[in-house]
Simulated assay, not measured.
Amino acid sequence: MTYRALMFDIDGTLTNSQPAYARVMRIVLAEYGKSFTDADAQTTFPMAAEQAMAHLGIAADQFDHFQARYEAVMADHFSDITLYDGMTTVFEQLPADLKVGIVTSQRRNEIEAGMRDYPIMDRMNVVIGADDTDKIKPDPLPLLTALEKVGVHPSEALFVGDSLSDEQTAAAAGVDFGLAVWGMDPNADHQQTTYRLATPLAILDVL
């Protein structure tokens, strides 16, 4: 299969951000008198902010305050987040005519703050975050919006992600899915995967 577009999730796919996420969530949730276990981190990591907060029992009228505190604390931990090994090499070797982008449940300000120092961002043709569409993953709208913006049909695209939500998004959009095994939850039951990618460099083998 020759793909004309390659779309990525961020957390657990491009960046190894779960340790920083867990650290920050423990700090912020402690302010609410709540604990945050390793199991909570595994469950909520792939979720959009509002979904994670609801799952953790944060009242809806506290969402804005919680998100603001999370972003403020995370600002001190961006240095703890790194690209996965091999990802820079992947981007250096992508075909020049391939449309590349990001489809994430992060908000725009999180994307800009967390990813701005990575040269791979210069290669992105499109970036769709949680506040760019009316619906978020696993609804297909964010992925379909990204592909529409780069003028590529879903049948000619590959979406690489680490979560069941990413897999469901790709399936609903009619897009092939590459499972980022390096960042996936080992307990997740993936059933709609086109490729199981053991390392970032495996992406180059399917293009």
Results as ranks from 00 to 15, higher is better:
His77Phe: 10
Gly33Lys: 06
Thr2Ala: 14
His190Phe: 15
Asp131Arg: 05
Asp189Gly: 04
Ala113Gln: 12
Phe63Met: 06
Ser17Ala: 02
Thr37Cys: 14
Gly174Asn: 12
Asp11His: 07
Pro140Thr: 06
Lys99Met: 10
Thr2His: 15
Gln106Thr: 01
His55Phe: 11
Gln51Ala: 13
Thr194Trp: 15
Ala113Leu: 12
Ala30Ser: 13
Phe177Leu: 09
Ala48Ile: 03
Tyr3Ile: 11
Arg23His: 14
Lys135Cys: 08
Ala198Ile: 12
Thr104Tyr: 00
Arg26Ala: 00
Val126Glu: 06
Leu158Asp: 09
Pro119Leu: 15
Leu204Thr: 02
Ala157Lys: 10
Leu179Cys: 04
Tyr195Ile: 13
Ile81Lys: 07
Thr15Arg: 03
Pro154Gly: 15
Ser35Tyr: 13
Asp80Pro: 00
Asp85Gln: 15
Pro200Ser: 06
Leu158Tyr: 15
Ala113Lys: 13
Gln51Lys: 09
Val28Ala: 03
Ala20Arg: 02
Ala39Glu: 14
Asp64Cys: 04
Glu112Ser: 03
Phe78Arg: 04
Thr193Lys: 11
Gly129Asn: 10
Asp205Ala: 12
Thr169Arg: 02
Asp166Thr: 02
Pro140Asp: 09
His55Thr: 09
Val126Gln: 04
Phe36Ala: 01
Met74Cys: 06
Thr13Ser: 05
Thr88Phe: 02
Thr88Leu: 13
His77Ile: 05
Glu110Thr: 08
Ala202Asp: 14
Ala96His: 07
Asn109Asp: 15
Lys99Tyr: 00
Arg69Tyr: 01
Gly101Ile: 08
Met53Val: 01
Ala39Gly: 00
Asp117His: 12
Phe45Gly: 10
Ala75Gln: 07
Leu144Ile: 13
Ile10Trp: 05
Val127Ala: 05
Tyr32Val: 04
Pro200His: 03
Thr15His: 04
Tyr3Ser: 09
Gln42Pro: 05
Trp182Gln: 11
Arg26Glu: 04
Arg4Lys: 15
